[in-house]
Amino acid sequence: MSEMQSTVSIGELARRASCKPETVRYYERIGLLREAARTEGGQRRYGAAAVRRLTFIRHARDFGFSVEAVRELLAMSDRPDMPCDEVDTLAKHHLEEVESRLQRLSALRDELKRMVSQCAGGKVQSCRIIEVLGDHQLCISDQAHQGAHDLG
């Protein structure tokens, strides 16, 4: 089988990795994905390694890893003989960030529930939700207020 027969177009690569061609181009621009070889007609062609790499990138992003963390993970995965303690450290740090974000989200949810439950359903001029949103000192939890900034 020739090299051209074992390659796929950008559209097919994107489909296999469950993303859009624009995402593929973006990852190429920022250096996470190597630029594709091109046909004489200028069409990008990607091999099996690009499919695996893009799938890795998309999966890592789905797990919430930042672009820089994905870059580090890719660099480590390109060195399969190295010990995985750096990978463990990076994943543990990300887990800590996720747990912290979950705590902030939980506090935010509780504050929103409280605001909604206190709304009497009258007019906006006496709406508890509007009142609380206008004065964060009316919030029970500073963590909820901080969570809103961190998550938005």
Rank of each mutant, 00 (worst) to 15 (best):
R128E: 08
R34A: 14
D88V: 08
L74S: 07
V87C: 15
R45V: 01
V98G: 03
E86M: 13
L95C: 10
D150G: 10
R114Q: 12
H145G: 06
C119F: 11
H145L: 08
D88A: 13
E99V: 01
S117N: 15
L112I: 13
C119H: 09
D81S: 14
K123M: 06
V8C: 10
D110R: 15
Y27M: 01
S117M: 09
H136V: 14
R61T: 01
I130F: 12
D88T: 07
V24R: 04
A91P: 07
L73H: 02
L73C: 09
E22H: 06
G152C: 11
D142P: 11
V67T: 15
M76V: 00
V70E: 01
K92F: 13
G42L: 00
R79K: 08
V70Q: 00
L32P: 12
S9Y: 05
E35Y: 09
R109L: 12
D150C: 11
S9H: 04
M115H: 11
Q125R: 15
R45E: 05
A17R: 00
S9F: 04
Q5R: 12
D110L: 14
G11S: 05
A69F: 03
L73G: 04
G121F: 02
V8I: 13
A69T: 10
S6M: 10
S126V: 14
T55P: 00
E35I: 10
L105C: 13
I57C: 07
S100R: 15
G147L: 12
Q43T: 14
Q125W: 05
L151N: 15
S126H: 08
Y26A: 00
D85V: 08
E35A: 15
T39Y: 13
R58Q: 08
H149Q: 11
A91C: 10
E72Q: 12
D78T: 01
Y27T: 06
Y26K: 00
A50G: 05
R58N: 03
E68D: 14
D135A: 03
A48Q: 09
C19A: 02
R16G: 05
I10A: 04
Q137P: 02
V70R: 00
R109C: 14
A48S: 10
G134L: 09
I57E: 07
V70C: 03
A14M: 05
V51L: 06
H145N: 11
C139M: 10
L151D: 14
V67P: 13
E131T: 10
V8K: 14
G122V: 05
L90Q: 03
Q103R: 15
T39M: 14
R45G: 00
G31N: 04
F63N: 12
D62F: 05
V67N: 08
R16F: 05
G152Q: 06
M4A: 10
D62N: 09
E35N: 09
E68L: 13
F65L: 11
G42Y: 06
R58P: 02
S18K: 10
R52K: 11
Q143G: 03
S18R: 09
E35R: 06
G11V: 02
D150R: 13
E72F: 02
G122L: 05
A36D: 00
L138F: 04
A49R: 01
R53G: 02
G122N: 13
Q146F: 01
V132E: 01
